[in-house]
Nucleic acid binder design. Sequence first.
RNA 1: GCGGGCGUGGUGGAACGGUAGACACAUCAGACUUAAAAUCUGAAGGGCCUUGCCCGUGCGGGUUCGAGUCCCGCCGCCCGUACCA
Length: 856
Amino acid sequence: MTFAMTADTTYDTAAIDAKWQDAWDRAGLFRAARGDAPKYYVLEMFPYPSGRIHIGHVRNYAMGDVIARYKMARGFNVLHPMGWDAFGMPAENAAMASGGHPKDWTYQNIDVMRGQMKPLGLSIDWSREFATCDPEYYGQQQALFLDMLEAGLVYRKQATVNWDPVDMTVLANEQVENGRGWRSGAEVERRELTQWFFRISDMAEDLLDGLGDLKDWPEKVRLMQENWIGRSRGLQMTFPLSRPAHGHDGIEVYTTRPDTLRGASFVAIAPEHPLARALAEADPDLAQFAVDVRRGGTTEEALEKAEKRGYDTGLTVQNPLGGALPVWVANFVLMDYGTGAIFGCPAHDQRDLDFARKYGLPVIDTFVATDDDSRVAETAFVPPKSEPVRWIDQPAGLDVATGQEAIEATIDWAEAQGIGTGRTQYRLRDWGLSRQRYWGCPIPVVHCPDCGVVPERKENLPVRLPDDVTFDVPGNPLDRHPTWRDTACPSCGAAARRETDTMDTFVDSSWYYARFTAPHADTPTVMADADYWMNVDQYIGGVEHAILHLLYSRFFARAMKVTGHLPDKAREPFNALFTQGMVTHAIYMTRDGRGRAVYHLPEDTVAKPDGLRVLRDGTEVEVIPSAKMSKSKKNVVDPQDIIAAYGADTARWFVLSDSPPERDVEWTAAGADAAHKHLRRVHRLAGDIARADRPANAADADLARATARATLEVTEGIEGFAFNKSVAKLYEFAATLGRSDAGGDARRAAMRVLAQLMAPMTPHLAEEVWQMMGGEGFVVRAPWPEADPALLVEDSVTLPIQINGKRKSEISVPRDMDAAGVEALVLQDAAVLRALNGGAPRKLIVVPGRIVNVVA
RNA sequence: GCGGGCGUGGUGGAACGGUAGACACAUCAGACUUAAAAUCUGAAGGGCCUUGCCCGUGCGGGUUCGAGUCCCGCCGCCCGUACCA
């Protein structure tokens, strides 16, 4: 295949970008199909169609594109798809704010964002694109839901939501600000609703064990998931009530610290505990207490930070070790965790200690430090469980033992005594998927007065969202849409009502990676395609998804195996995970007369030579560097502007340079300008090399060595996800090539390799240069260059000489000189002689090929 | 509150426990130019008694021949915290 040469010698990015994007498109280079070659599946977390892409998206997709194009050059059959995580609240918020329809808003945003992404020249197979709000997608999700319902992976139970008593609506956590509804300003209450749940907690152990296989996931993400799942070993035991009350003979408690039973000074139950509810019926003060502590949001953070409050029920229970304990209702005990009841041991839990001090309960030490037997006063004594401590009157008869040993011994002791049972408990709760909202996947069930909850028939899927809805009234429009809501029972045909809750948008994103393997199939997946393409070989996205999205996806992969939609090998769907940092940008701010912040667009400010930044009228501007991009702070960088000014390759090159991919990178106009200068330099250099010829000479060998070195280091950078280092090497290599006196053939050969090494990052320029150098076909299809090992070996090495650990000198020695030879040379070094002052070194450390340290 | 991460020149960053500051931005100097821009070349962590020496990787300790890197204790910022996506 041949392409028209771009006539001009100037670096015309618009022409070059369009030319090659068109050529790739016509050649169908990125359309993925099953084949004989080994496959490689690259996936970036798909975007929410918020309106416009920002430079952070560019960074995310540029990274994925580097991997995709590199793997293509390595001969893999690459799948690199793109879609839209299109359901969610912002669309409804926009509808409420401006009266449009969430569907129109969403699809318009998708069109705009696709239009912004295509000019980046990403190697995406656009024929596989879908949005999760497409009925073709969410209909298959409903089919999946029905299969999971049948497999017993879905059920209904009561759960707590944020309730706005003025707007009469359920609020998302982000709609609760300081315990108040964002619109009404009313104090938020917690309310119980019957909701749908996935049985993810049944798979807690498997999800935990599976983490061990995820070798190519960041350690920190595995650790966060491990802590989130939270396996603990503890004791379940019953404290008998001194007098039975409301049909309760005792209170069942789960504790991870049974070893501290001797130190128990109270038992606390959740306000939602059945006994608390029963007591509240006859005790208005307790009922009021329960209402009071239910104020405020439902987030774990809000619950934890809330003031610890209790209500004395007047009941007592018997401690099996002797003595009676008062029973309190406490706001910090959660009904969802364990049994909804705890015993408090103030000496060894700060929260219990605060509670005990507040309500005058005893503090009983059960162990002290081995070297310090002072008793607990203001601060609970909570040493690590691995640290030995001295026990006081320990039930299992221990003296000095670690917490861990004491827990295990006490569980054994309690089981032998018949006091309780050892139990493994998980922090992970079942996944509540019900949302009282319109813009989500309808839950495909019908509520029939006679048959109860009835699944919709698969042939009736998708259960489509009705289009004729309005958002001028608070609450879920599906709930007040009679012709949609009212339907016939799929089982008996009687008048019935549809489920009006829709699914959590995390459901949509929990299986999209599988759908990409057969995006237009009339079943959720096609086994042959899933079997060929799964797993995702490299998944890339933000660390903010480290827990929920990634855990839910792992659960879904297992559930889809159970329901026959994925092969067993896909139970861990993402072989490798990379979490990239954000793109930040400085905020320019002044203050108005009342001291409030006023934000300014970067282009409205000017940098003065002295470094100060001012407005056009001279007002000094406060610069806040490295801030997360936000429309309201006016520091968002729009890739479209960058592409228009500099071309796609500059935008891609810049976001890959400077910062390591896992860290945040700060966008600076100067940085973008420098990136563009470099690419222009490479383009000009290619032109020079193509035009000028020089005879072969002695410099050819040096250039060949530099080429081999660059090939090695750029490749290592890409393989190790250190694109910034690859970029640095490419800067260096381009400078070396520019300065080289080598002959024409040698320079052309080096330039061809440079084009290949640049290709994953700046593909348009790379194709152009490749063509100028007379390369065959597309550079993206050219096999990745290999560094000749013979050219990587240096004859001599420079060894730094340290004296007492500080670098003072250096020597150059043959590469293979032995330690004795090096020592002899070192002892003649001027700096060493001066330091030793005629004496002998106390010690001489030679690390071959690396360093010498003289201890004087 | 809890869990996780990060912290290196004026700036972004580099550095298998082994020469701290590669590469780049900004800065300064020089070349080219009538001039400017563009381009090219070079300098540069801070300090001093400048053949050389001292201090330097958020703060305070420790391990080591040697610590940005490992350990302990702090400080600051970022992410998550189950209905934001």
